[in-house]
C-alpha cells in the first residue's frame, strides 16, 4: 500500500482521487467568487452607463474576439481528449493533446496581444497614462468601460498563462512521473483549464456583444 497515493494521509488511491477532484472544485468555486466580484462591478457600471458601454463595446474587434472564443473552446476540447486518452493509457496521444492545449492557449494570448496593440494604436487603452483619444459619445464612461475591459481580460489572461506554465512544467517532468500521478495531474489541470474557458465564455458576450 501507499505506493500509489501521493499523500501519506490516504491509503486508497480512489479516495485520494475523490479528494483531489473535490479540492479542485472548491478552488474553482473560490476562483468563481473572484471573477464574480469583478463581474458585479461591471454589471453595476453597465446598468448605470448602458449607452456609453454599448457604444464603447463596438470599438472592440468582434472577429478577433469570436476567433479567440473558438480557439479557447478548441483548447478545452483537446484538454478533454488528453484526459480521455490518459484514462485509457494511451499516453502518446494524451501528451500530444496536452501540448496542443497549451499551444492553443498561446494562440489565444497572441490574438489577445494583437487586439491590445490595435486598441493602444486607436488610443482607447486608458492604462499606464496612454492618452485616451476616443471619438464616440460620452468618453468619460467609455473610458470606464475600457478600463474594466482591460482589467477583466487581463485577469483572465493571467489565469491562462498560469495554466500554460503548469502544463509546460508537467510535460517537462512527464517521463519521471508514474502513470497514476500523470493521470492525477491531467485531471487537476483539466478542471482548471475548463474553468478558465468558462470564464471566457461569459466574458465574451458581456464585453464584445453589448447591443451590437
Amino acid at each position: 500500500m501507499g505506493a500509489s497515493t501521493e499523500s501519506v494521509a490516504f491509503d486508497k488511491p480512489a479516495r485520494e482521487q475523490a479528494a483531489d477532484t473535490f479540492a479542485m472544485w472548491i478552488f474553482i468555486g473560490s476562483e468563481a467568487m473572484l471573477f464574480g466580484a469583478i463581474l458585479l462591478v461591471f454589471l453595476i457600471a453597465r446598468i448605470s452607463y448602458g449607452p456609453a458601454f454599448a457604444a464603447a463595446s463596438h470599438h472592440l474587434s468582434l472577429p478577433l474576439g469570436t476567433l479567440n472564443t473558438v480557439v479557447l473552446i478548441t483548447s478545452s476540447f483537446s484538454m478533454a481528449l488528453a484526459h480521455l486518452f490518459g484514462n485509457r493509457g494511451r499516453w502518446r496521444a494524451s501528451t500530444w493533446s496536452l501540448a496542443a492545449t497549451a499551444l492553443l492557449g498561446l494562440v489565444f494570448l497572441g490574438i489577445k496581444a494583437a487586439e491590445y496593440t490595435m486598441e493602444f494604436r486607436e488610443g482607447i487603452a486608458p492604462v499606464l497614462g496612454v492618452p485616451f483619444t476616443y471619438d464616440g459619445p460620452d468618453p468619460v464612461h467609455a473610458e470606464f468601460f475600457f478600463g474594466l475591459y482591460f482589467a477583466m481580460a487581463s485577469l483572465h489572461a493571467v489565469h491562462l498563462i498560469g495554466g500554460i506554465v503548469v502544463i509546460a512544467g508537467m510535460l517537462v517532468m512527464w517521463s519521471s512521473a508514474t502513470q497514476s500521478s500523470r493521470l492525477r495531474r491531467v485531471r487537476a489541470i483539466g478542471l482548471y483549464w475548463h474553468f478558465v474557458d468558462i470564464v471566457w465564455v461569459f466574458l465574451f458576450p458581456i464585453l464584445y456583444l453589448i447591443n451590437r
Binding site: S48, V140, G147, L148
Partner: peptide, 14 residues
C-alpha cells in the same frame, strides 16, 4: 498603478 477609475467618482465609478 494603471489609472483605471473603477471606484473614482470623477470617472463614473462608485
Amino acid at each position: 498603478m494603471f489609472g483605471i477609475g473603477i471606484f473614482n467618482p470623477a470617472l463614473g465609478g462608485d
